[in-house]
């Protein structure tokens, strides 16, 4: 292997951001309310070991959720040809909220913690099926009609959610509200493993389809002429990305903004080509959410903030900075 080859490989952003992931992971592992000196870390007490295990599980969860949302966001934006689309556009978040709220209000959440993610996943998939079915029935299965069906189902779900909230007592209401705000402490390893596996498979699939996805953003006619199958591709992109979103909602509740801004930032920094965009989104989305969650864990000694607060609060200004940096650089 020649020197120029090594240089080429290292200049590939996927490689060095991939190397950044374990570095960030170790740094974030050291942060937390439970104070420990460096020497304690090398020889942890059983309590510290338990704390570190919790942190590791949580960081892993944050990485999977962040990656899933960012990849799903990039896919939805391409399929709907709308850079402001987000992974929840197909009613996934609405369906998941109703599912989780139903599990809480039916008292199933008291029986076992597992019911909340299970119900929210079922709710999300059910809403997704309904949306795709509705779009099919209208015969015009263009991305626009899929998005429209998503909005209809989403608003129906939100009224159902309001109904459930109106009949719930204060503890249930508290549970529903906190679920909606999102938390990244994993409640079951099964679901997390499933989400991680689907994230990896989806990213691989999308990356291989990357050139076709590029073509699809230019409209169906152009994509068709270039040799892609825009209809099939739209279905794959929207279906798989909604599944990713459903998984991450079931794992951690609704976490906004990641799916919207990470693809934007990556496009601004490394270009729009989807062969590169998808893996970069997975890595960067993961790092971003790990960072946000660490911040949410550490900012107060006793409390935890909902991570959604941090994603928007840090993500918003950062997003603006990236946009303005680009403007300045061009002008």
């Amino acid at each position: 292997m020649s020197f120029s080859n090594i240089r080429r490989i290292l200049s590939e952003p996927v490689i060095w951001i991939g190397l950044l992931v374990p570095v960030c992971f170790v740094i974030f592992m050291c942060c937390g309310t439970y104070s420990a000196g460096f020497s304690d870390l090398l020889n942890p007490s059983p309590m510290l070991a338990a704390v570190l295990k919790l942190r590791a599980a949580r960081l892993l969860c944050a990485f999977v959720v962040g990656g899933s949302l960012a990849v799903a966001g990039a896919a939805c934006q391409a399929a709907l040809r709308n850079p402001l689309a987000e992974p929840y556009i197909l009613g996934v978040s609405g369906g998941a909220s109703v599912g989780a709220a139903a599990a809480i209000i039916l008292g199933l959440a008291m029986i076992s913690e597992f019911f909340i993610p299970a119900f929210s996943f079922v709710g999300a998939v059910f809403a997704l099926m309904l949306v795709l079915g509705m779009a099919r029935c209208w015969a015009a299965d263009t991305p626009a009609s899929i998005a429209l069906a998503g909005i209809v189902i989403g608003s129906m779900c939100s009224s159902l959610l309001m109904f459930i909230i109106s009949i719930s007592n204060s503890h249930e209401l508290n549970g529903i509200t906190w679920w909606l705000l999102g938390s990244l402490q994993p409640s079951g390893s099964m679901l997390l493993a499933f989400s991680a596996a689907s994230l990896l498979m989806a990213t691989l699939l999308f990356t291989l389809l990357g050139r076709e996805v590029d073509a699809v953003t230019f409209g169906e006619e152009t994509a068709f002429s270039l040799g892609a199958d825009p209809k099939k591709l739209s279905y794959i992109l929207l279906g798989v990305s909604s599944l990713l979103a459903a998984c991450s909602v079931a794992v951690s509740g609704i976490i906004g903004f990641v799916g919207l801004i990470i693809p934007h930032i990556i496009r601004n920094l490394f270009g729009s080509q989807h062969r590169r965009l998808f893996p970069l989104c997975m890595l960067t989305g993961g790092i971003f959410l790990m960072g946000c969650d660490t911040f949410a864990r550490c900012i107060f000694a006793t409390r935890e903030l909902p991570v959604g607060v941090i994603t928007s609060f840090i993500g918003g200004p950062f997003f603006l900075w990236v946009l303005s940096r680009r403007r300045a650089w061009e002008g």
Partner: peptide, 10 residues
């Protein structure tokens, strides 16, 4: 107030 697991462990 909602508290964190780490705080409880501490």
């Amino acid at each position: 107030f909602p508290c964190s697991i780490e705080w409880i462990m501490q």
